[in-house]
Simulated assay, not measured.
Amino acid sequence: MAEQEGAAQTADTTRVPTVIADDLHIVYRVYGTGAGKGSATAALNRIIRRKPSSGVREVHAVKGVSFTAYRGESIGLIGSNGSGKSTLLKAVAGLLPAERGKVYSHGQPSLLGVNAALMNDLTGEKNVILGGLAMGMSREQVHERYQSIVDFSGINEKGDFISLPMRTYSSGMGARLRFSIAAAKDHDVLMIDEALATGDRAFQKRSEARIRELRKEAGTVFLVSHNNKSIRDTCDRVLWLEKGELMMDGPTDEVIKAYEKETGK
């Protein structure tokens, strides 16, 4: 019995926390919501006159969410539209301040969304270089991984699109390139917002395989998706949010079954 207890204690020490959310609350404040007071001209006049807006609307997007993520986990976030999934990821990434509570992270979390900003007037090639540098890769690392990024994205399968400006890409091509750039780097914490919903099945399989590789390389992956199959194929744990509240946190199949039973999806 003592040996078993010692083994359990040893196993526990190998679980390294990467993200801790402690009673996290996120509140958006929308100014100038009074009737007829929301125009850009009205806002400029208030700034010049130093007169505060009379209409302020508060949106409590995340309400008291607490969880601990560990190295090697792949965690799915599910919930209906407007449930607070993307807001939670932005808060973990440090892009939104907490109204109350705290977020602690190991290293710098990286947030990848299908709307992640690349420069539309630059070619795909230059965006790969800039994107890699922005994530902290050296020029040598970007050069070494450049071709694998292009190949992974698949945007050159029907022509030399990598040499064309990003504005000529379809939304799916742009999303695939963004994911490919982010996935080329090893991350302590990688957060993906709907990236697997884009592209054909072949690209989705490559994306899922890459996420599994990132987990093996001692990272933690968060995935927001409305595709329950992608969550099942990729994640071993799921957080279910509704109206900003954490409804359930547990093994993937258990949480998704409860979610589907509740919502009929």
Rank of each mutant, 00 (worst) to 15 (best):
L112C: 12
T14G: 06
T10F: 14
M191I: 10
L88H: 00
D188V: 04
L246V: 07
A98F: 02
G154V: 11
E245P: 03
T87N: 00
N115M: 14
G32T: 06
A93H: 09
S207T: 08
V92K: 03
G72S: 06
T13H: 13
V189C: 11
I181M: 02
D249F: 00
G101N: 03
H226P: 09
G199K: 01
L89I: 06
M137C: 04
E3I: 09
D186K: 14
L44F: 11
D22Y: 02
K85Q: 01
E144H: 13
F222Y: 11
R46I: 08
H106K: 11
A98P: 02
G132E: 03
A35R: 13
N115R: 13
T18C: 07
E140S: 15
N156F: 00
I47H: 10
G82W: 05
T18L: 09
E262S: 10
G250T: 11
Y169W: 14
R139M: 15
S180W: 10
G79Q: 07
A43D: 12
A11E: 14
M1A: 07
T33C: 14
M119G: 03
L24D: 03
E254F: 06
T33W: 05
L122G: 10
L190D: 01
T87G: 00
A183C: 04
L44G: 02
L190T: 08
D22I: 00
A69N: 01
V56R: 11
R232N: 14
D23H: 09
P251I: 05
V114A: 12
D193A: 12
I192E: 07
D200I: 09
G84M: 04
D186T: 11
T41Y: 13
E260V: 13
H25E: 12
G244W: 03
I47M: 11
S138K: 13
G76Y: 12
I47V: 14
V62P: 01
D249P: 00
E99S: 10
S163E: 01
S163V: 06
D249R: 00
I162Q: 01
G159K: 04
V255R: 02
V62F: 08
D160N: 15
G34N: 15
D233V: 13
G38R: 06
V128W: 04
K257H: 11
V56L: 10
A182T: 05
D193T: 10
R50V: 03
I192P: 09
R46Y: 11
D12P: 10
L190G: 07
E242S: 14
R29Y: 12
K158L: 13
Q204P: 07
A175M: 08
L164Y: 10
I192K: 09
T123R: 02
Q108P: 05
K90P: 11
Y28F: 15
S110V: 15
R46C: 11
V189F: 08
L130E: 08
A2E: 13
L118D: 07
V224Y: 05
E254L: 13
R237G: 00
G6F: 11
V56W: 01
A7L: 10
N156T: 02
L88E: 00
S105L: 03
D249M: 01
M173I: 11
G64V: 00
L239N: 05
S83A: 15
E217W: 09
A202Q: 09
G84E: 05
R29M: 08
S171N: 08
V56N: 02
A98S: 09
P52I: 08
G34P: 02
V150S: 10
S74Y: 03
G136A: 15
L239I: 10
D193G: 12
G136P: 13
R176W: 04
